[in-house]
């Protein structure tokens, strides 16, 4: 793995109270995400068990593991699609217990999906505008009666949507129907839509899936760029090791619903458990 191009800064990782590590620059801030003994059972099967993770305010973190390890389940727990059967999720120190998906979103969690879920009958710009739903608002009556507030807020939405689309240089696609976009562009649009909700923590579920190496390389640059520009934390699930090792500062390895290793990219690559559970298997295949 020596040929990997690095986009991560070689941050010094330091421990925080809950036996986890965050980048040194974030140690004095409230961690954007903290999970404590998080777990969920589906009819006796422990899909995720005793999951502890702390993510610093501006950290880019990775969640990796073999297929079926429970990575997407963790995302669903963090975004309140599932209610955990044990443990707690804290976002900026606030417990998510009993909250709905919408409330979690308002607290600043945004996500993309493994199998892309765009509003595919609508245009690219409309998709981003829907992401701006709670950021730039006006009520139903202003909308129907076309009151001044409608025109003002629509203009703001349009401008903001264009700004956001510019991150990936997608302004020229604004009026295309999102379902007709090529795969890579759909993945990028999902990220833009998630960013539109003004998140504190962005969860990316296999953002590089289906992308060619060139696109993956570009995505890596963009992930780092998004973090720098928006000053947010990013947690990503990814099977493409060049991306994970190239951009993630802290990495958490999951196998059979349990964390088997946590650390920096270099530590993870050297960890024998990880090699056995994950990378080792890949070499045999």
């Amino acid at each position: 793995m020596t040929e990997i191009k690095k986009h991560r800064s070689d941050t010094k990782m330091v421990p925080v109270p809950s036996h986890s590590i965050v980048p040194e620059r974030d140690v004095n801030e409230i961690p954007v995400l903290e999970t404590r003994h998080l777990g969920i059972e589906f009819g006796g099967l422990k899909a995720v068990d005793d999951f502890n993770l702390t993510i610093g305010k501006t950290e880019i973190a990775g969640l990796i593991g073999p297929n079926g390890a429970g990575k997407t389940t963790v995302f669903n727990l963090l975004t309140k699609v599932y209610e955990p059967t044990s443990g707690a999720v804290l976002v900026n120190g606030q417990d998510l217990h009993g909250m709905t998906i919408v409330q979690a979103s308002k607290l600043g969690i945004a996500r993309t999906f493994q199998n892309i879920r765009l509003f595919d009958k609508m245009t690219v710009e409309e998709n981003v505008r829907i992401g701006l739903h709670n950021q730039i608002r006006y009520d139903m009556f202003s909308g129907i009666l076309r009151l001044p507030r409608y025109w003002k807020q629509e203009k703001r939405q349009h401008e903001r949507a264009m700004e956001l689309l510019d991150i990936f240089g997608m302004q020229n696609l604004a009026d295309e129907v999102s379902g007709s976009l090529p795969y890579g562009a759909q993945r990028r649009l999902e990220i833009v839509r998630a960013l539109a909700t003004d998140p504190k923590l962005l969860l990316l579920d296999e953002p590089a899936a289906g992308m060619n190496p060139h696109e993956t390389e570009e995505l890596m640059e963009n992930i780092a760029k998004i973090r720098d520009q928006f000053q947010i934390a990013i947690l990503l699930i990814e099977h493409d090791m060049s991306l994970v090792m190239g951009v993630c500062e802290g990495i958490c390895v999951l196998n059979f619903g349990r964390v088997i290793a946590k650390g920096t990219a270099d530590e993870i690559q050297a960890n024998p458990d990880v090699i056995e559970a994950y990378l080792g298997k890949k070499k045999e295949g």
């Binding site: 998906i101 945004a110 509003f119 409309e126 829907i130 909700t197």
Partner: peptide, 14 residues
């Protein structure tokens, strides 16, 4: 319309 196209994605953007 967002709810029509994908309920879960609509919820996830709030």
């Amino acid at each position: 319309q967002a709810i029509r196209d994908s309920r879960i994605a609509a919820e996830s953007v709030g």
